[in-house]
């Protein structure tokens, strides 16, 4: 059992001079896409560049565009793709370092820009904050916190390309989890920061990020909730 694999190759920082190389790769029942590119690098073409680390779906470094959709390759079995051929490309909207390895700096720069770190209201307190598991706050935050920063959503979002300053789904989703957290003290600052076309209002609800998130997170849900919080925040500021 084997499969034909087409890989987009590119040696520079621009993707203007690219080509597709084709390989025949043997498969086992549970082969995943990362096994396939590993096989190519180990046996067919040692110059193939790509990035991975944990192989367990935790680190979020092995994301690639496979058959037209951004995926975490370590957890995407070839069988599940139901295709006789694999086309593997680097994640879109990122500068390419080489072949399938992309520069994640634009993603993490934006992530840092929204103050993605937790800023405690009571940094010296020895008491644990008591937030009930069934509280609205917990129910708002819980579905949004499992992000592994794989960058699939940023690569799939059209607005990232058409609106150059747009912060992207992952960064806004992270900001939302902190804004909704009653223990955090930088919420207002983040609300001010995201009240712009580059922030929450830049999202056109295309749901591309939601469709590709390997963790099943819906950044669109966070962004929509954030838009409502922005309206409340603006009213509060206006009347205060």
């Amino acid at each position: 059992m084997g499969i034909t694999v087409k890989i987009r190759r590119c040696s520079g920082h621009t993707d203007d001079n690219f080509r597709f190389d084709t390989f025949e790769v043997p498969l086992t029942d549970n082969s995943n896409v990362l096994d396939v590119v590993n096989y190519i690098q180990n046996n067919l073409d040692p110059t193939l560049a790509f990035r991975y680390s944990c192989r367990a779906g935790m680190c979020g470094t092995c994301s690639m565009r496979v058959n037209g959709k951004n995926r975490w390759t370590c957890r995407s079995t070839v069988k599940s793709l139901r295709s006789k051929m694999l086309t593997i490309e680097p994640l879109p909207h990122y500068p390419i370092i080489k072949d399938l390895a992309v520069d994640m700096r634009p993603f993490f720069d934006r992530y840092r820009h929204v103050r993605s770190e937790f800023v405690s209201k009571h940094p010296t307190s020895k008491e644990f904050a008591k937030i009930q598991p069934n509280s609205k706050e917990r129910r708002d935050i819980d579905p949004q916190i499992e992000c592994i920063t794989c960058g699939c959503c940023y690569g799939e979002c059209n607005l990232v390309e058409t609106n150059s300053g747009y912060l992207g789904p992952a960064a806004i989703n992270r900001a939302f989890t902190l804004i909704a957290d009653s223990r955090d003290s930088a919420g207002e600052e983040r609300l001010d920061l995201l009240n712009s076309p580059q922030g929450a209002w830049g999202c056109h609800t295309q749901f591309n990020c939601t469709d590709v998130c390997p963790m099943g997170i819906s950044p669109t849900r966070a962004i929509q909730k954030l838009k409502r919080k922005e309206v409340g925040h603006a009213f509060k500021k206006f009347f205060s």
Binding site: E156, N158, T205, Q206, F207, N208, T210, D211, T220
Partner: peptide, 8 residues
Amino acid sequence: LSQKSVGN
């Protein structure tokens, strides 16, 4: 046009 998702 390449993404045929409902939202798109």
